[in-house]
Simulated assay, not measured.
Amino acid sequence: MTSYCDSAPDHPWHGPYHDHEYGFPVQDDNALFERLVLEINQAGLSWLTVLKKRAAFSDAFEHFDIATVANYGDQERARLLNDARIIRNRLKINAVIHNAGVILKLKENYGSFKGWLDAQHPRSLNEWTALFKRTFRFTGPEIVNEFLMSTGYLPGAHREECPVYQQALEQSPPWSTPSPSSTHSSKG
């Protein structure tokens, strides 16, 4: 089976994501929220489909501003469901809006979404998945795994022989601290 590290380089969509984002730590809450939104929307689809719609998602969800999305009501839901540029799935759209509200509440206790994630680290994938299922909507094991790998909380985004592996490691992602288990990417 070809890994993402083999197939992504030099690809017009996968290449930039693989080389500059995937597995690197993310500091900004709206960027973390974007990754969660993208992973939720990938469910049942290819990652390429999501990457091609990424700019449209950013526009549709107002640059992933958590407070703005958390306050979406019926009018915004209808707008999103009618926006052909994005993935128009009612369950996914409702989950994104609900999860934005959850993140706002987490920020009250932890200062930020990143603060909440940092306070939970390290955990095994099973522990993370159970936590996300209790906390958020539409966050099954695959979504949780890819979200956490893509943002540096779980290892496995890159093979050690991939040149990007060392670049990500130099930015001290949370996975580079001792954790109870490791996991593997399924992006490939």
Rank of each mutant, 00 (worst) to 15 (best):
D118P: 04
N99H: 03
D83R: 13
G115Y: 10
L51H: 00
N89H: 15
K105R: 13
R79H: 10
D59E: 15
K114G: 06
A78M: 12
N82H: 13
W116K: 02
R79P: 01
I103H: 03
E62K: 08
A78H: 11
A55F: 06
N109A: 12
H63F: 08
L91V: 13
D83T: 14
K52R: 13
A84W: 14
G73R: 06
N109Q: 12
I103V: 11
D118R: 07
L81I: 08
S112K: 04
L80M: 13
G73T: 06
A84D: 15
A100F: 08
H98S: 07
N71G: 15
N94G: 15
R77M: 13
W116E: 07
N71W: 09
S46P: 07
V69W: 01
F57Y: 14
L117G: 02
S112E: 03
A84S: 15
N82A: 14
I66D: 05
L117I: 04
A60M: 06
W47K: 05
L117H: 00
A55L: 08
T49A: 14
F61L: 15
L45Y: 02
G101F: 06
K52Q: 11
E108Y: 00
W47L: 07
I86V: 14
I103P: 01
E127G: 11
L104Q: 11
T49G: 13
I86F: 02
L106Q: 10
F57H: 07
E127N: 06
N109S: 13
S58R: 15
A67P: 09
F61R: 04
L125S: 03
S112H: 03
V50M: 07
A56R: 14
E127D: 12
F113E: 01
H98V: 02
T68P: 00
I93R: 10
R123C: 08
Q75P: 08
G101A: 06
V102A: 01
E62C: 09
I86P: 00
D65R: 07
E127V: 04
Q120R: 12
L51N: 00
E76L: 06
D65L: 02
L51E: 00
L106H: 10
N99F: 02
K52Y: 00
I103Y: 07
E108N: 09
V102T: 09
L125Y: 07
N94S: 13
E76M: 09
H121G: 06
W116G: 03
G115W: 11
N126H: 09
L117D: 01
V96F: 04
R90C: 08
N89M: 10
Y72H: 11
K114T: 10
